[in-house]
Lab assay of single mutants.
Amino acid sequence: LSQDQINEYKECFSLYDKQQRGKIKATDLMVAMRCLGASPTPGEVQRHLQTHGIDGNGELDFSTFLTIMHMQIKQE
């Protein structure tokens, strides 16, 4: 990932990090990914979360979000 991409991801991540705690809700993951041009299915989002041990009510930090985005873009 280039620095530009990382900055773009950070900007989008921040939109969903409403309390500015450095985390977004798992329920916002799909929308955040789509905001960056990825098109994950609900099943793919579920798999990404399970891979990282996050349940549907959990939260993920930016580095986890980056990893998930990277995996998603590689497979699209």
Rank of each mutant, 00 (worst) to 15 (best):
E11A: 10
V31S: 09
Q20E: 10
N57S: 06
H52S: 03
Q20G: 12
G22V: 01
Q20L: 07
A26T: 11
F13D: 00
K18Q: 09
G56T: 04
S63K: 13
S39W: 08
V45S: 08
Q20N: 14
S39T: 05
L29D: 00
S39Q: 05
Y9D: 01
I6G: 06
V45L: 03
A38E: 15
L15Q: 09
N57Y: 03
G58H: 04
G56S: 11
L15E: 13
T51I: 07
S39P: 13
S2A: 13
I68M: 12
K74R: 03
D28Q: 08
T27W: 07
F13W: 04
L66G: 11
Q19G: 08
G43F: 05
T41A: 03
Q5V: 02
R34D: 10
G56A: 14
K25Q: 11
A32C: 14
G37K: 10
E8Y: 11
L1V: 10
A38C: 09
Q19P: 08
G56R: 08
I6H: 06
D28R: 05
R34M: 07
Q3W: 06
Q3M: 09
F62W: 12
S63C: 11
D17R: 01
S63M: 09
N57Q: 15
A32L: 11
Q20C: 13
V31L: 12
I24Y: 00
K74W: 06
R21K: 13
D4F: 07
I68N: 00
E59R: 04
Q19L: 07
E76P: 14
D4K: 06
G37N: 11
L49G: 01
E8F: 06
L1G: 10
G22W: 02
Y16M: 08
D28G: 02
A26L: 03
G22Y: 02
Q20F: 06
Y9S: 07
M33F: 04
C12N: 07
V45Q: 05
S63Q: 14
K18P: 10
K23M: 11
L29Q: 00
S2W: 05
E76M: 09
A26W: 04
A26Y: 03
M71K: 02
A26F: 03
G43W: 10
Q3N: 08
F13E: 00
L60M: 08
G56V: 14
E76S: 12
G37W: 02
G53D: 06
L15V: 09
V31C: 09
E8C: 10
D4P: 05
D28L: 04
D4H: 07
Q3A: 09
I68E: 00
S63N: 09
A38W: 14
L49Y: 07
I73T: 13
M33R: 00
Q3V: 05
N7Y: 08
A38Y: 14
L29N: 00
C35A: 14
D4A: 03
I68R: 00
R34K: 13
D4L: 07
Q19E: 09
E59K: 05
L36A: 11
I24Q: 00
A32P: 02
E8S: 15
D61Q: 02
A38I: 10
D28V: 06
T27R: 12
E76Y: 10
P42L: 05
A32H: 01
Y9F: 13
L1Q: 04
L49W: 05
T67S: 03
S63P: 15
G22P: 00
K23R: 13
L1Y: 14
N7M: 12
L36K: 07
A26V: 10
G43P: 12
N7Q: 13
P42S: 15
Y16G: 02
L29H: 01
